[in-house]
Design a protein around this nucleic acid. Sequence first.
DNA 1: TGATCTGGCTATTGACAATAGCTTTTTGGG
DNA 2: CCCAAAAAGCTATTGTCAATAGCCAGATCA
Lengths: 197, 197
Amino acid sequence: MPRAGLNRDRVADEAAAMADEVGLNRLTLAALADRLGIRQPSLYKHIDSMAGLHRDIAVNAKRDLGEVLARASVGRAGADAISAMSHAYRDWALKHPARYEASNRMPAPGDVEDEAVSLAAIQVIADVLTAYSLEGDDAVDAIRTFRSALHGFVSYEIAGAFRWNADVDRSFDRLVRGVVVALDQWVGTPTPVLPPV
Amino acid sequence: MPRAGLNRDRVADEAAAMADEVGLNRLTLAALADRLGIRQPSLYKHIDSMAGLHRDIAVNAKRDLGEVLARASVGRAGADAISAMSHAYRDWALKHPARYEASNRMPAPGDVEDEAVSLAAIQVIADVLTAYSLEGDDAVDAIRTFRSALHGFVSYEIAGAFRWNADVDRSFDRLVRGVVVALDQWVGTPTPVLPPV
DNA sequence: TGATCTGGCTATTGACAATAGCTTTTTGGG
DNA sequence: CCCAAAAAGCTATTGTCAATAGCCAGATCA
């Protein structure tokens, strides 16, 4: 029995690559073990469970995405930073669809490492919005809106939900421009009075 | 063996209700059969497969959501219609999280019924944007942006991704407001919004 | 009434995650 | 250098699923 030189990170990396190819929910331990050249039960020397493997994929993905976003926005500010970060976000997600899906899973309560990388990634997004000098709840609302727009677009695109022939790249540019326009008027916009629904 | 009076729709309805309680991916045929008072293999008299059941849940959900959106926006226009539809969308999704998840699955190619209800639901959204007199690719971009913002926010909210203490209702109001602001400036020159009726 | 269709049933299979328990390789302290 | 123990592989097995095969009773209708 020659050893395969595996460890937890190597297994999680290969699992993430495989998931990106076949889909996160179609990742099976039998196929992963096969790809790693070992038998399925041997995987449990490196993982706790399927859920634990998904968690490892998620943590690595959040860390990677956070770093990509940070690199994309360094040295930029305002609309420029938002645009650069948005495109880096979309590019990364399209390149790693299963990792992206995993990255949106919430950390289990008490999983400090997962909570840390999750917060770090969101913090990168939050920092880019500081140019708009939003504070308190206004800032939280803006971050939630920005994240929602990006996530909605990208997850629709990955799911293949944009079927009309219009150029998806162009639509994304327009979405980003829309976010910038909305942020420009964020503070001055009064909390809306809603019509009865 | 008394008969249980089941049919395909009844099974799909009960499955949808169960999925909303336990989560779409944790819906099992054994538990569903138990709830319906029959044995697990008997379910196959009413469904084709698990995938087929998910498809039925999705089709019913798309039809229901489309009708809810249509009712919410009837008699309104412009920002008023967008706001009413957005809140109806969010309320429905929060009330039926698994149905909402199912409703976002793409129709299988050639599934004309699924394609029809999918298109109908999107058409309701598209109609609400006609007040902005967008045409061609501009309209497609706007629809994609609107849908993305709604879907991103709602799916984050269902996933429990909004952990900071700021009021989520307020954040959603601000997002909707942001969409309206962005649409006002969509084509470069602000388009007047029809006043509420 | 009796043939046929429908909707239930038991028994079984195959894919999968997961566990038990054994063996071989690697490693590290004396 | 040596050997004890940890680490990493293995086979065998279990339990939970979805799914199929094949049987039987109740309903339907000529």
